[in-house]
Design a binder for these strands. Sequence first.
DNA 1: TGTACATCAGTGAACGCGCGTTCACTGATGTAC
DNA 2: TGTACATCAGTGAACGCGCGTTCACTGATGTAC
Lengths: 211, 211
Amino acid sequence: VNSRVVSRSRNARGEGTRLRSEIVAAAAQILAESGNPDSVTLRAVARRVGISAPSIYAHFPDREAVLLTVIGDAFAELSTTVNAAISQHRDPVLRLRAGCAAYLRFAQQRPQPYRIMFQQSHPLPESDVDSAFDLGAEAFDILVAAVQACIDAGRSTSVDAFADAAAVWVAMHGYSLLLSGLKKFPWPADEAMFERIVLRLAGVTAESAAL
Amino acid sequence: VNSRVVSRSRNARGEGTRLRSEIVAAAAQILAESGNPDSVTLRAVARRVGISAPSIYAHFPDREAVLLTVIGDAFAELSTTVNAAISQHRDPVLRLRAGCAAYLRFAQQRPQPYRIMFQQSHPLPESDVDSAFDLGAEAFDILVAAVQACIDAGRSTSVDAFADAAAVWVAMHGYSLLLSGLKKFPWPADEAMFERIVLRLAGVTAESAAL
DNA sequence: TGTACATCAGTGAACGCGCGTTCACTGATGTAC
DNA sequence: TGTACATCAGTGAACGCGCGTTCACTGATGTAC
């Protein structure tokens, strides 16, 4: 048993990571369809992937770890997509607009992950809530900086970038959730809402907003 | 068996309604503690009330009906409390302030029912989603009217009461959820947020807001 | 006032189900010699 | 090139659990006569 010590760590043979990502994708699908983390069961995931449930244990210690990966991926994607949108512009108002638009787009396109990302409901252990919180705080700093850049450029009347960024964020959050949740509500045009919950709350001056 | 036809309907003997309301209260407690409608099981409710699970069937056709009653009660309470707050004032700005403050207070004091009330996640059948929607729409009309009253009194610069009321609502919604969910976030003072997401979005003029 | 009986709230056992997780296993894959 | 064998991905059966719901029941309560 302990004879050969050379040749350590075989390194997965092609599968391994593939199955792992199939598991995560299936879990994400189920979550997107049901909107309920409780329905992301190991057996349901395994059925969708076409494997037996115990196979999942080769890649994740338990059910919670699967869900955590899905949510962590969603955070990473949101962060990436917002950063990409912002960095396409140099004008501070355009950067703010693009970042917020990307945020709202993500929330509309992935309503269920979005909803669960910012929900305290305890499928997550304390340590992971904290790490998700750090990710979120980092993203929020970007928003504060974007508002501050508008102030510095004389394009916003804001006198408190942090508080105004917080207002923009909560408004975007509420709009995202309600827009995807209450489809029957006679929502004003998207641009009208955007003008109010982003530009007005950020104190962007009218002539600046008009570009 | 079919001899006596006189003396119909005995009318519960004291209990009956009492047990029913104990069931609803227990379900509401469980929901408030867990934040997860799935954990409001008939067995858990029965354990808390101190009865056997099948006893619940004397008062509700199934599990879903219990949850529905809890949520319906929460809607009724929100509506009542907001209306009561508004009707304590005659000044339109004060009415708007009081109504919104009451809304935010409700959401902070009953975070879990609040969260589930406005969530599309399907524990509810279509017809009940619709009736909840009607309740919510009615409450929203009150907000629109409050904003319009400010406009009519020359206290708001708003030119679209409906769109501005929608903006106020989504912002209050997002603030409510995030404030109770992210307790570690360094939130600005409550008044600072209130000023932004209610008064500024409703277009209430500075001198009017200052009273 | 007394008694037979209808009514009613509530019980306890049982059903079938889907779940997370464990465990001993199987068969294909690649490597050492 | 051939063969023994370690490794590894994945399986199938089984466990104990909590669940919603059904069903036949029990015993207290109140009413008709």
